[in-house]
Amino acid sequence: MSRVAISVLAFVVGLPRLAAIGFLIAYRKVVSPLYGPVCRFYPSCSAYALEAVTVHGFVRGVWFASRRLVRCNPWNDGGVDHVPAGSRVFPDGKTPSIVVLNHPVIPADDESRPAA
């Protein structure tokens, strides 16, 4: 009984995070493509928010995302700005795709093909 209660509680506590993730994914699928890449940062603000909420949970994630939105102003030169590392550990091969996409492995320069 208590086991069921705990898992139900965990689910309810995790709901805001899931809702936020759902909202962000929908935004990135529907709204973002409308005006193309316009962010002065990498990852873009919505990708940042999605990763933050995925990795840090709802409260901290939303906090990080709002701080990023404030940083995204005309007086900021932009650049690469990653989500701070979180404590959440994902099982091998189950890393959420947004985390993978936001941290691409940069190939070394000597891998580049000779100029054609």
């Binding site: 962010c39 990498y42 932009g78 996409l101 936001n102 492995v105």
Partner: peptide, 22 residues
């Protein structure tokens, strides 16, 4: 993933030169 890697490097490049098309 490669596109993402390229975008990231590009952003770092803009930052290095203190400019940004946006």
């Amino acid at each position: 993933l490669s596109r993402q890697a390229m975008t990231q490097e590009q952003m770092a490049l803009y930052k290095k030169h203190g400019t940004n098309p946006f």
